[in-house]
Amino acid sequence: MILPRFEFLEPATFEEALKIVEKNKGEAVMMAGGTDLLVNLKRKVIKASVVISLEKIDSLKQLNYSESAGLTMGSMVRVSELAETPIIKQKFPLLAIAASKLGSPQIRNRATVGGNVCTARPAGDTIGPLLAYGAEVQLVRGKESRWEPLAKFIVGPGKTTKKEGEILAAIKVKPCAADTGYSYIKYGIRKAMEIAMVSVTTNLTFDGKKCTSAAVVLGAVGPVFMRSGDAEATLCTKEITEALAEQAAEQAGAFCTPITDTRATAEYRCDLVKALTKRGILEAAGKHVKQSSSRKQEQK
C-alpha cells in the first residue's frame, strides 16, 4: 500500500514546530507515533500535503512525577513507556494497565499518549484512565498556552477542541489519593490487537470502609467516553456492597448511549455495561480491601 505524496517535516525544537505548524495551516497534519495517521493516509481517509512529525522534539518526551504536583507527561511519551514505567505502574496503575492492552508490542513501541488522546476515538485505550484520574491537557499555539480538562477537550468521535495551529504539549494528572481501589476492563472478542467493544474504568477512593469519591468511566458506548455521574453518586459515602454495585451498574447501563456496529449491537453493549460496571466496582473495592489488609500486616 503506497502512501500518497506529502512533504515530511521534522522540527527539532518545540518553538520550530510551532512556527512550522503556523506556516502550514490548513495543509498539514501533525504526526505523533504515526500508528493511526499513516494507516489513515494509506487508506486515504485523511489527506494532507504536509506531515509534521513531533518525534525529534525531546521536550515532548519528558515524564515527571512529584508527590505534590502529580504526573506531567509530554505528548510524545510512548504507550510502551506508560505500560513499563515503575512510577506509573505504582501511582497510576489504571494508565499502565490500559496502555499494556493497546494494540501490539510493535504498535505500543511507536504509539504515543498524545496521539491516542488527539485521535479521540470512543475506544481509545488511555483515555478512560486519564479521565478517571481527572487529567488536563496543555495546548500551545504561538505564545499562547491553555490548560483544559480532558473531559472537555474531547467533544466527539475523532473531534477535539484543538484549534488549527495548536500543539498538544503535555498531559497532567494530579496525585492520586492514598487509599484507592481500581479496575480496568476492556471487553472484546479477542485479547490481542483489539478495539474495545465496551471498556469500564473504575477508580474508587476510600476513607476506611467508606467510598469517598468514585470515577466510573464508560468507553465505546457513546460518541465520547462518559462518566456515569449517577453511578458515581450512588457509590459515594457508602460502604461498597454487591447490592450497591448492582444498583450503580443498572444506572450506568441506563445512562450509556451506544450504537450498533460491526462489533456489537447497542442492546448487547448496554448489557455489557451493566455486567462489567458491577464487576469493575467489586474488583476495585476488593483491591482496596486487599490493600488495607496488607497495610495492616505491614504495621504489625
Binding site: 500500500m1 521534522e10 504515526g34 512529525s53 510502551s80
Partner: peptide, 13 residues
C-alpha cells in the same frame, strides 16, 4: 533494539 512495524515507520524517521 525495539520491535516496530516497519510499514508504520517512515524511512526518514
Amino acid at each position: 533494539g525495539k520491535a516496530v512495524n516497519s510499514c508504520l515507520v517512515l524511512a526518514m524517521q
